[in-house]
Amino acid sequence: MSVQVKQRRRGHVEPRPEGAVQEVAHQFEDIGQQNESYIVGMWSFLVTEIMFFGGIFMTYIVYRTKYPQTFTIASGELDWKAGFLNTLILLTSSLSMAFAVRNAQLGKRWRTLLCLGITILCAFGFLGVKTVEYSTKWAHHLVPGPNFHFSRHGGEQAAPADRGTSFVEDASPETSGGGAKPEGEIPQHEAQLFFGLYFASTGLHGVHVIIGIILLAYWGGLVQFNARAARDFIPIEMVGLYWHFVDIVWIFLYPLLYLIGSPKL
């Protein structure tokens, strides 16, 4: 009496009113349950990602409050214009990702593919700019390690005379005259911490971008060959959630790393 029976509806295909076709996996009862499971699952995974990057941000907060001056000076060494370009690229990629999801929802295969393609292109653009930035830092001995040496190159080829106008006023004449010896001014370890955090955070973010490219390409490929799995829009939406998250991380990284050093136009 107390047990009633529910009909099983496993493995059936449900056409969406909007156009996409979804298949119910065996462990789910209906498509609503399946879709929301994926969304909640992805969000709880993103919670772990938030906490993961949160650890880096935590470290950043601690050392920025500990060494505010050095962080400001060291931040001036980053190329805020390159960062601006990258933010632009990532936001654009987020827009095209959002459109990819929308087209997948509507079951528009070719448009989905086009949008995924644009997203991937943007991602490669982002990595390209990042590579240029990294190689500049390498050339300037700003990669933490035994070769680290921070002397202000003044971001955009600033002349040595430029130095006096910057943050620290009391540079003694012999160090500013020496050209390459401003160590008395900027503690090397503190600067190395900034660049360590710069490389750790942007590097981890970069790894996420690369994973994003792989995911996008994989699902793009499935859509291309019209695989059964790719008729469902939910996987694309999942990739989208991930990609937007990567974007959000950058939204915070950009001002914290590039813009705290009073950039000049």
Binding site: S94, G240, H244, D247, I248, F252
Partner: peptide, 18 residues
């Protein structure tokens, strides 16, 4: 800058991430 970043993130979460 952080306030702006929070606003931007909220926009992305609310609209792009549905």
């Amino acid at each position: 800058m952080l306030t702006i970043a929070v606003i931007k993130a909220t926009l992305v979460v609310m609209y792009f991430m549905h």
